[in-house]
Design a protein around this nucleic acid. Structure first.
Lengths: 216, 216
DNA sequence: CTCGACATGTAAAAAGTTACATGATTCT
DNA sequence: AGAATCATGTAACTTTTTACATGTCGAG
């Protein structure tokens, strides 16, 4: 089932949009190259970090907006060091494996500052669960309910963390320096998006409950 | 733009979760394998379509939640046909290149119905623009303003389309058959998510304007 | 003495993007 | 005549995931 049968959508659209506008909607599925590399460099603006530390800090900050596994991060760090955008310093540790502390070079800082001006396209939404909803039926409705409930719980946890960060570090955003205000805005995006998702979950659960009670 | 008062999740959570639970938030970055294949099969539930038609219908329906390029779709269709989940029928056309109309086989329908019960993990958010906000500075602030404005316009267009679809095909969701109600919920997710994003854009633009006027 | 956190990776596979290719038709 | 649309792909590449590997240290 589609929103609109393929044969009709053209007519529907001819009404609303000029064709050039439609084309703009269509071709949005593009990746912004090197995004992870720039996310990593961003994480190194203030502090020099080892791969492990970086991966950890990713989990509670930038990773909210660009996820990466530790394997990817290690590889990317090595590549960036090879290209001269990062400088890596080996640190021998007694008892523990050696680690490499990475920091931005001047070149790296320049490349990062330049990247901000690159055009980036809107990110595609990708969600399995919403595709599953297209397959909703009397038989799988209770499974969808539990899946949505699970997502709702996960989002609750995440929001709790966001809120905690907001209150401890961004309670008075107006007095923060410019860059911190940018981070605050990103955090706000996560918070409002999460709140919206919670609201949607409740709407969906309510509707699914209605369908279920009508069945019985 | 107002959202339901979910602000109390903070208190709720302070009671429910201890800090160790937060670790569970960390390892959510996984892909759900074969998601595109299932999205394609979903698009073929009601109608048999050629690759081209499928790609088009993707653009105005399922593609809102799982984007794919036509190249990817053609490849996936071929693979699915090889695995017996789709059946492809060659249609000779005069004047135009031949096309292959694909439809679900019984096996395909079963696999799809089964897939709905597979566990899927929360999708990672990936957004370049939010990473860029971490690099906000006096010099690039006006660029960020124009980038957010661009996103806002794009989202407006998309919301306009969503809303049009909702009104023409889902005006009275309660009387729809179960599966259509699932699609309606997905659409609602897109709409509320989009509205939230617009609201965030306005919040961000307001804050950035404040910073700019403080500079001058 | 085992389990989990610390710390660092390699290798292979899957998924997704970009660039290229072709050739008819229809609209301006 | 030139642009856009219809219609179908292939090939090369990048990005991301999964699975595997190794070894130390501290807590229970």
């Amino acid at each position: 089932m589609q929103f609109i049968a393929y044969k009709n959508y053209v007519q529907v659209f001819a009404y609303i949009f000029r064709w050039d506008t439609l084309a703009a909607i269509r071709h949005n599925n593009a990746r912004n190259p090197m995004a992870l590399a720039h996310a990593i460099m961003t994480a190194l603006i203030d502090d020099d970090l080892s791969g492990y530390e970086l991966a950890k800090s990713f989990d509670v900050s930038l990773g909210f907006f660009w996820r990466a596994s530790h394997q990817q991060i290690y590889q990317e760090l090595r590549k960036l060091a090879e290209r001269g955008l990062l400088r890596g310093e080996k640190v021998s540790q007694s008892g523990k494996p050696n680690k490499i502390i990475y920091g931005l070079t001047e070149e790296g800082r320049e490349a990062l500052a330049q990247w901000v001006y690159d055009s980036s396209r809107m990110q595609e939404a990708k969600d399995d669960m919403l595709v599953k909803l297209y397959n909703l039926g009397d038989d799988n409705i209770s499974h969808m309910v539990s899946e949505i409930e699970k997502r709702r719980d996960e989002m609750m946890q995440r929001l709790y963390l966001y809120e905690r960060i907001r209150r401890t570090h961004y309670a008075k955003p107006d007095v923060l320096p410019v860059r911190r205000q940018g981070v605050y805005l990103a955090l706000r995006c996560g918070i409002t998006g999460g709140e919206q998702f919670l609201a949607w979950c409740d709407e969906a659960l309510k509707r699914l409950a209605q369908i279920q009670s009508a069945q019985a």
